[in-house]
Design a protein around this nucleic acid. Structure first.
Lengths: 201, 201, 201, 201
DNA sequence: CATGAATGAGAGTTCATTCAT
DNA sequence: GATGAATGAACTCTCATTCAT
């Protein structure tokens, strides 16, 4: 009966707006989503959205930045727990990345299709952790090649290929499909390890 | 001095409109592209676009359908010239698919990002050759696995992974980059062959 | 029954929009006037206004620029017909200026109250002839003082006083009032001649 | 350490809001000024403004009424100190009126440009002392004409001309300009005396 | 084929104002 | 007194599309 418990059940408006925006961006696309439909889904007036966010772009920025950061964090955490061998690091990174993509399918799809609609300034606020993440993958792959574990042409390009492959999960994955997110991620780990020409000793 | 020769220099309006639309869809996205900017780029009035196409959706449909069909054709032609072994077929298909993607980067990017904005009816007019193409890849991969050439979990899913990986080329490839389209396609052929766990006999 | 004669009766849309805008700016003020009310008064849709003018500011600019230019022209024409003596020039200028103000009361009132709402760029497009006009008055007044016909402190300031006095006509003059525009203008000519301390030889 | 001394330093909210409103009305105009910017300038929330004033109109009314009353009072005080002769009364009134206008430039400008945005009821609450003031000027001018000191056509109209001329001071006067408020007011006294055709005996 | 003019629908955004706290 | 959150109404401006010519 107190404020805390009720707020535990119905999330605060700000979060409800973000959730609604993600849903709308996902189903309709950024441009086709309207502040009015977002607001209605969030259960408030369109005007009130502007009490919490500067404008429509800001909604997209917040959503994408949060997703990017979380995904990066997930990957780094996985790496910390994995063995030091390049193959283990590589697989751990790909699996974690894929797992996050499958589990946050909406946000990841939006990130891959709507990022382009942000202006230069806002895009920079989002792509930071994306670039860092890519750099992480490149480092691991290069270590693998240098150590003779991997054998693949154009390492950097291979990393790009793997990352877009993983991002693609967001295009088709459904939680109620035949494979669990974990199963999908695991197989993508295998694909990626194969892709870089890993040959067990 | 005949019509044909003049049309060889300045393409007919219909084609100019399609070219303009592709360019606008590519740079601005389907929703942000306006009939006016498309028309201006094509060098005619907005009203005149409607003398050649039913509506804005139709422009997207035409562009995507043509690209899909051409890509499918390119892939089938490559398969006809390739050896019968699964590895050869698989590589030929991936290379052809990738090559088309790199060489038609704009259309392929639009196909992957804007297809969702078509309604059910129009989307069906486009996805036919896409599905056929996917089916082709699946058939080859399954043959490879059945014959023991390939070793990969969840074949169908692996094909999806490969196709999204190839589609990703459209996201970053630039004709004036360090690698030629052919070089990129060749390395993607290697990636794909690795990915399915190919082991030369 | 032909197009020409009908267009002679009902002015073209562009002019109807300008007329409507002036009326709305006059009665409601620039900010309170809406594109919808302007359009409705002009007998077209709000959207169509944008086929003829870039935006709301442009409406104000066009109205004010035309009024400024016409007023300047009226003053210069009057000067050409007047005698060379400073008193004659001065009176002619003031009377012409006042006459225009009374006869174009709406435009002049809008010019004096709404000019401030234009941004720097647009304001410059309007104030050119205003400044030129002021310079004209100053030149005449200074000649009068130099020749001993006028005797007034701070000549430039006196000109400003006269011009604001004349502009004030737009605040209260009504065509159906007791005095004709010409009668009002004539008496303002007297006021202005008195004001600069004219003493007939 | 008591309330009075502290209020001497930081004025009470009500006054801070009025000051802020005047500043905003002056720089942006009544319609463009928002309750939020006014509140921010006053250092409180927009909602709090409504604890002190009924609505936005009320802010304008309060400002204009105070200014009108003060100006009227200033004029009457000046008249009491001046000699009885029409020329002395007339000059004293104009100088006092001008002086107030220069010294309260912002309020006077707002009074002359934004009064029109008040509805009938509110406008009446403001124009009372304006009308009274005009009546005062007319009385003096008519006495001057009746006594043969002044010679000017359409006395009432001449008064209007003088009052708008004085009001114009608010348009251009700046405290840091070349002339002091007193100097400006004095020369406007001369202009006005000239204007009514004063001939020293 | 081609166009300028026209429009209904709707988008993002703002704002004066209210109200629970 | 004071506030943050909320809202209905309205505004400027855009856009796909139509139509007379």
């Amino acid at each position: 009966m107190n404020t805390r418990s009720s707020s535990a059940v119905i999330p605060h408006v700000r979060q409800r707006i973000l959730d609604a925006a993600l849903e709308e961006f996902y189903t309709a696309g950024f441009h086709a989503a309207t502040m009015r439909t977002i607001a209605k889904r969030a259960g408030c007036s369109a005007a009130n959205v502007y009490n919490h966010f500067d404008n429509k772009d800001e909604l997209l920025v917040e959503i994408l930045r949060a997703a990017s950061d979380e995904q990066f964090t997930a990957t780094r955490n996985a790496l910390r727990k994995a063995g030091a061998a390049p193959a283990e690091q590589w697989t751990a990174a790909v699996v974690a990345h894929s797992l996050y993509t499958a589990r946050n399918q909406r946000a990841c799809l939006v990130a891959n299709t709507e990022l382009r609609y942000l202006d230069e300034v806002d895009r920079k606020r989002v792509v930071g952790s994306r670039d860092a993440q890519e750099h992480l993958f490149v480092t691991i792959a290069e270590a693998g090649v240098a150590g003779g574990d991997f054998d693949v042409p154009h390492v950097h390009q291979a990393v790009t290929a793997v990352l877009t492959m993983c991002a693609g999960i967001a295009l088709w994955y459904r939680p109620d499909g035949p494979l669990s997110a974990q199963a999908v991620a695991d197989s993508y780990g295998v694909y990626a390890l194969n892709l870089v020409g890993y040959r067990p000793a």
